[in-house]
């Protein structure tokens, strides 16, 4: 695969220290940038807050999934046993919440888990997405090893190459670099 070089897509800088990268996140957020991200090998606690990210909406989805599971379990047991297929087994009631508990619980957990999994990966994180426009940058790749890679995206309204470079240098980033689009030619 050959690659040619295109437009500027980002300015990147590297950090190795969690304190400095957190301070940098605050600095970038404070400077008014919105289209930026920090790629890290593991979750650095407090970084999302320093970046000014709002709380995740995942719990709402989880709750909805759980309620769906619980109510379907109720409906399933009530309708099949109590209405559709009335079978007397040892004189036990056709439906009672007591014997429904295990299935209430299991379906609630199952639906919550599936909702969380697909919402988190698919909806909130937009995965799978097997291509990233930054993927040829070595520092970006090293973010799955030990690098904290700060990316100021060119799409940000405040972005100019010079100001972005100056900001990252001021915040103490190493290896501040301009990253250009890589056009793949198969």
């Amino acid at each position: 695969m050959e690659a040619t070089i295109g437009n500027v897509i980002a300015v990147m800088g590297d950090f190795k220290n969690p304190d400095k990268v957190t301070a940098a996140a605050k600095g970038i957020h404070g400077a008014g940038y919105t289209k930026f991200d920090i790629y890290t090998p593991y979750p650095v606690h407090g970084l999302e807050k320093a970046m000014g990210m709002p709380k995740t909406s995942l719990p709402k989805f989880a709750l909805a999934g759980g309620l769906f599971g619980l109510s379907s379990a109720f409906a399933l047991q009530y309708w099949t046993g109590g209405i559709e297929y009335k079978l007397n087994i040892g004189g036990k009631p056709l439906f009672a919440p007591q014997f429904g508990v295990p299935v209430f619980f299991e379906l609630m957990v199952l639906c919550t888990g599936l909702t969380v999994f697909f919402t988190m990966f698919g909806y909130l994180n937009r995965l799978p997405n097997w291509h990233s426009k930054y993927q040829y940058d070595a520092g970006f790749q090293a973010a799955t090893d030990d690098n904290f890679c700060v990316v100021l995206e060119a799409e940000d309204p405040r972005f100019t190459v010079e100001t972005a470079q100056a900001l990252l240098s001021k915040l103490g980033a190493d290896n501040v670099r301009v990253v250009r689009e890589t056009l793949e030619q198969d």
Binding site: Y39, T40, M53, L58, N129, H131, S132, Y134
Partner: peptide, 21 residues
């Protein structure tokens, strides 16, 4: 790996999902 990049914007949701799990 679903194209995981290590984005903090992803870790944020990811960590919460992990806790719910």
């Amino acid at each position: 790996s679903l194209g995981w990049t290590g984005s903090t914007r992803n870790w944020h949701h990811y960590e919460f999902a992990y806790m719910i799990f």
